[in-house]
Design a protein around this nucleic acid. Structure first.
Lengths: 227, 227
DNA sequence: CGGGGGCTTGAGGCCACTCAACGATAGTGG
DNA sequence: CCACTATCGTTGAGTGGCCTCAAGCCCCCG
């Protein structure tokens, strides 16, 4: 029951197969793919939750807004991640495509149909929600108690393992997205990255500032206190 | 399947009966009560998770620490709340008694035994975890993007509904706990509360600064932007 | 070549933090 | 009963880290 499917902190290694929905029950499951343009809204806050999504290509940001425009991004969903399973009737977030993004859609209703007859599916949902919760808990520590330097270092290390290919990490999000994820301003993010570059910790590949090469992971790690 | 037991955001209205564990299955369920002194540790971070807990009396804080002592309290668990169901082998938090606290303990193993044969139990666990997640998401917005005044106002409104009896809200936690929950210093919390008192929004009952009377809920609400 | 978006960098300001002093209360022991 | 101590909360003065505002660069794309 409580044995975990895997031990990763985030949900990105789950597949739809983990949900059991593609396992010989294709007759009742409705799977669709859909591509969203950069900046397109996938669902809005307080909209009814009709689908659950898995990222096939691209990246998604989930965020909340204050009425004066302040934004807090709670999570980035990268390739392989499943999101949108609020388990409530309405989404508590807005979700947008950070770049051009292809998603697999699963109807909630179809999922429920399977879940009723398959306890393993419910258990998988529980595991995924728990992963989301743990990410949120770590992020609270970051937002409430870490300095700008520590926040950016933690962000880079989080993304490093997931985005780095051939030594280069290609960030799909811009500085404002990073800032709104870390509870900073985009200027502060930029300043910290510049300082890290000047300090020899990282470098920008070619002239694209979203392509980052980590030169010294060990020193980068020292910037973010472990607990 | 996805129909919620209730619509409250936090989990404090769940009882153990919602978990199904007291419903004619007492033979395999092991229920114990235990009282913790003020400041006593209930479980430590990375300890194996043997129990799930329900607060009978008192209050509990769940927090994470950085190595230099900075602390982020993720949640306060008040009377009725269930906590400790990390659904992983080890707790991601430390939990401590804020005041003298009585808890009901449920062995995880017992819970698993019931859950295997009862899908409703798993579903309840999922609902509770989802509630925790939503609280965490709202708290991220608070920590990342709200001012000190907005944070304290949000805190008071969160506690108001749960602690106020006969017009008086009796906070179990001290200023440092509040500060570590809101990502502030205790001095800032104190200053904001003083300003609210001077502004006629609240008052301290007798001479105990933890007993607070909200004089003007409407104005208090205006201090915290809604989204 | 002009315009716009994204990023960087600088100058100055402000909000929350740091450091410190002080008062109030409760518990302890002589 | 009165020190004595420890804990908690408040308040003040000054600092500093991050924000605000602004200018300018680079690249892309018409």
């Amino acid at each position: 029951m409580f044995v975990r499917i895997n031990t990763n902190r985030t949900a990105h290694l789950y597949t739809l197969d983990d949900l059991g929905v593609t396992r010989g029950s294709s007759a009742i499951i409705n799977l669709n793919e859909f591509t969203y343009q950069q900046g397109a809204e996938i669902y809005g806050e307080k909209e009814p939750a009709r689908y659950v999504y898995q990222v096939k290509k691209g990246a998604v940001r989930s965020y909340k807004l204050l009425s004066d425009g302040r934004r807090q991004i709670a999570a980035f969903h990268l390739v392989g991640d499943i999101f949108g399973l609020a388990n409530s009737e309405t989404h508590p977030f807005t979700a947008e495509a950070v770049v051009e993004t292809t998603l697999r859609l699963i109807e909630r209703q179809s999922l429920e149909t399977v879940a009723v007859s398959d306890a393993a599916v419910t258990c998988s949902l529980l595991n995924m929600t728990t992963d989301n919760l743990q990410h949120a808990e770590n992020h609270m520590l970051l937002l409430g108690r870490k300095t700008a330097l520590e926040k950016v270092a933690a962000f880079l290390m989080e993304m490093d393992g997931r985005l780095t290919a051939a030594g280069v990490m290609t960030l799909p999000m811009n500085r404002r997205d990073i800032a709104d994820y870390l509870g900073l301003t985009l200027e502060t993010v930029s300043r910290v990255l510049s300082k890290m570059r000047d300090g020899g910790v990282l470098d920008f590949k070619s002239k694209n500032q979203r392509e980052i090469v980590i030169l010294n992971r060990k020193r980068l790690a020292t910037f973010d206190l472990q607990y």
